[in-house]
């Protein structure tokens, strides 16, 4: 799952949260490569609103860790221009929901320059951004939107769920010659001020390593039903799988980890094995990831499924504020378990 650059004997790991693992990955790359910089709103003294840059200012100074004005268009574009000139900027968009004020720089510039230049210009940039709901932040601060980014050509899209992947995918993203959108769910970060997920803490090797972009992970093997999912929904799906195992239902949980490129082969192999499919996606249901997974099966061999698939997504509605309403829209363990029982019935 992780590609360690040192020999296995040397590997030492300890438990880190996703946020600490991300920061460690950034710091190790900054030590290795002076062209890596971090910029965005509150990434300096504050350390990132969701602790994605904690301690970096103290270590690397204001010349490489740059607080920007609230001008996403200007500073995301600045990242693109710096990348074109050979730097490796990590630009934080504080909430993915804010993409609306700067999308032109993202999808028309960052993502297209390499293609428009016939491959002559590289844009080795990471756009990292916080996604997801579950803490009553309302319709403009709770979305995932990874399907939107994955739909538009020219950006790789990675969505880690575990601490080890968070570090290894970050290092891969920084080293990638292409723009990579790195989407971290606030709920996987292990923040002390948010509902804890036990899966937010995990073993992380101390050494520098990469996790390949475009390779899904089987986070739990099972024979009865394939659960294709990502991000915080991986945590929920693993918890649900533990519960359902007690009833004799063996779930195989596929953590996609990357949407672009998408590991179609792993999805197909798993569904070929189990014959049943549930897609759990905290993005809006229609025209997105869950439909794309369905299309993979339909285009390859619809007979892989012995019964109709189920989708557990955010219904096509803005994310509501009231806790009762928000929980009704999110892919909660209750909804995931119900969908799995449905396909097993």
């Amino acid at each position: 799952m992780v590609k360690i650059e040192t020999s296995p004997q040397q590997v030492t790991s300890r438990k880190l949260t996703v946020s600490k693992a991300m920061v460690e990955g950034i710091a190790q790359e900054m030590e290795r490569d002076p062209s890596v910089i971090v910029l965005g709103e509150d990434v300096g003294a504050y350390g990132g609103i969701f602790s994605s840059t904690t301690g970096l200012l103290e270590r690397f100074g204001p010349g490489r860790i740059l607080d920007t004005p609230i001008s996403e268009t200007a500073f995301i574009g600045l990242g693109t221009g710096a990348a074109v000139e050979g730097m490796r900027p990590i630009v934080e968009l504080m909430f993915v929901d804010f993409f609306g004020v700067a999308m032109d720089q993202i999808y028309n510039h960052m993502a297209k320059i390499h293609y428009e230049s016939g491959g002559n210009v590289l844009v080795p940039m990471v756009l990292m951004t916080a996604v997801g709901g579950g803490y009553s932040d309302g319709a403009q601060h709770s979305q995932c939107l990874w399907g939107t980014f994955a739909h538009l050509p020219g950006m790789k899209v990675v969505v880690p769920s575990s601490p080890a992947d968070a570090k290894g995918l970050m290092i891969s993203a920084i080293r990638d010659e292409n723009p990579v959108v790195y989407m971290f769910h606030k709920g996987v970060m292990g923040l002390p001020w948010m509902t804890k997920s036990t899966h937010a803490l995990g073993d992380v090797p101390e050494e520098s390593y990469t996790v390949p972009i475009g390779k899904a992970a089987i986070t739990r093997s099972g024979t009865d039903v394939t659960v294709v999912t990502l991000s915080l929904s991986v945590h929920h799906s693993l918890d649900v799988a533990d519960e359902l195992a007690k009833e004799g239902i063996e779930c195989e949980v596929v953590d996609l980890r990357s949407l672009v490129p998408l590991d179609r082969a792993t999805v197909l192999e798993s569904v070929a094995k189990t014959g049943r499919l549930v897609v759990v996606d905290e993005d809006y249901q229609s025209f997105g990831l869950s439909g794309e997974i369905a299309a993979i099966i339909a285009e390859e061999d619809p007979r892989l499924l012995r019964c109709p698939m189920k989708r557990v997504c955010v219904p096509d509605t803005p994310i509501p504020y009231a806790r009762s309403l928000e929980q009704a829209t999110l892919p909660t363990p209750t909804r995931i378990a119900a969908a799995i029982r449905d396909v097993m019935a």
């Binding site: 074109v84 730097m87 032109d104």
Partner: peptide, 25 residues
């Protein structure tokens, strides 16, 4: 044309932000 650090944007005013990044670099 990277050999002369030349680029374009077809979107009005949106060539300004990448120029900041070139200057920053």
């Amino acid at each position: 044309d990277p050999s002369i650090h030349f680029s374009c944007s077809g979107i009005i005013a949106e060539g300004y932000p990448p120029a900041l990044g070139q200057a920053f670099a």
